[in-house]
């Protein structure tokens, strides 16, 4: 039973992390509101704080309930029809029988690269999305391996934490960017307004915060995402009882060329990149910013199973 207990541990850990993340994002948003309020001056302070509270609550609630839709929309995924993608549906149904999970909703996204991701907040509200490249280039066994990997993300509640991170963190990045830009404009337009020292300090704090916030949260996100991939590979093997398919799929992914045109790169938002089974940007260098563990290492581990 040791295996099951660790499985449950992982689920509760993911649930706790999701709650923490929501609290942290709430605090970050409030802090941003606070700084913006101070920069704008005492006349606007109260209004901005109230707005910040309302916006961050609405934002986190939509993030929680609609994260899967936001993620799907950001890659322009379409529902996979039962007749057109019957093999895809059959494989997922089989794996759901093997793992005792409800069948997630299935989506397809237009992309020549082999890739896939899962999203949602729990197994009852989960989605799996694969690229058209994966459906054409992978054989049945390999596709099953990839889908098994995604189903384990769903079973472990990785999807809740990962999608929440992607959606909430992505937004922090956007907000601070807007903040930075508006500061730039106000410093040009408002040159004649006299500023005292404290406002300048807050301005600097604001800039630092706006730059640091997304980077810090992104680093945290990347570190967890990498460990999750290994454990999902392992669970996929547990469902399928054979690592062959997943190894084959990873080898094919490894052999692929990185996306060359800017057009292809633009299709996937950076914020949702960690959701995918392999890094959609395929950077060759591994460092603290890598969203995924090296594929060769994953294959090595799988081959030992």
């Amino acid at each position: 039973m040791a295996e099951r207990i660790s499985f449950h541990d992982q689920i509760s850990r993911n649930k706790w992390k999701s709650v923490f993340l929501m609290i942290i994002v709430f605090i970050v948003l409030l802090a941003l509101g606070y700084v913006i309020g101070l920069v704008m001056g005492p006349d606007y302070f109260m209004i901005i704080m109230v707005l910040a509270i309302i916006i961050s609550i609405v934002y986190i609630i939509t993030g929680y309930y609609k994260s899967d839709k936001i993620a799907l929309a950001s890659v322009n995924a379409k529902p996979a029809s039962q007749t057109q993608y019957s093999q895809y549906h059959h494989s997922v149904e089989g794996l759901c029988l093997a793992s005792g999970m409800p069948k997630p909703r299935l989506y397809v996204m237009e992309n020549r690269q082999i890739n896939a991701f899962a999203s949602g907040r729990d197994p009852e509200h989960a989605v799996i999305c694969v690229t058209t490249g994966a459906l054409t280039k992978l054989n049945k066994q390999e596709l099953e391996g990839v889908l098994g990997h995604e189903l384990s993300h769903i079973a472990n509640y990785d999807i809740r934490f990962m999608t929440l991170t992607a959606v909430l963190v992505g937004m922090v990045a956007i907000i601070s960017q807007i903040f930075l830009r508006s500061l730039w404009w106000s410093s040009i337009a408002g040159g004649r307004r006299s500023r005292d020292n404290s406002q300048v300090i807050f301005l600097i704090i604001g800039i630092i915060l706006a730059i640091l916030a997304p980077i810090v949260v992104m680093l945290v996100q990347l570190a967890i995402s990498r460990k999750r991939e290994y454990s999902s590979d392992a669970s996929a093997v547990k469902f399928i009882r054979s690592p062959t398919g997943l190894i084959g799929a990873l080898k094919k992914i490894d052999a692929e060329h990185p996306p060359s045109t800017a057009e292809e790169k633009k299709k996937i938002n950076k914020a949702v990149a960690p959701l995918f089974i392999s890094d959609p940007f395929k950077k060759k260098v591994q460092n603290a910013f890598s969203t995924h563990p090296p594929i060769k290492r994953r294959i090595e581990i799988l081959q030992k199973m």
Partner: peptide, 28 residues
């Protein structure tokens, strides 16, 4: 042929889940 082969896979997976369940019950 495709449908029947998918069913064959699903039967195998459902059996696997059944046997997993029996194993858990036995352990418990």
């Amino acid at each position: 042929q495709q449908e029947l082969s998918a069913i064959e896979d699903k039967v195998a997976y459902a059996r696997q889940y059944y046997n997993d369940g029996v194993l858990y019950l036995e352990n418990a």
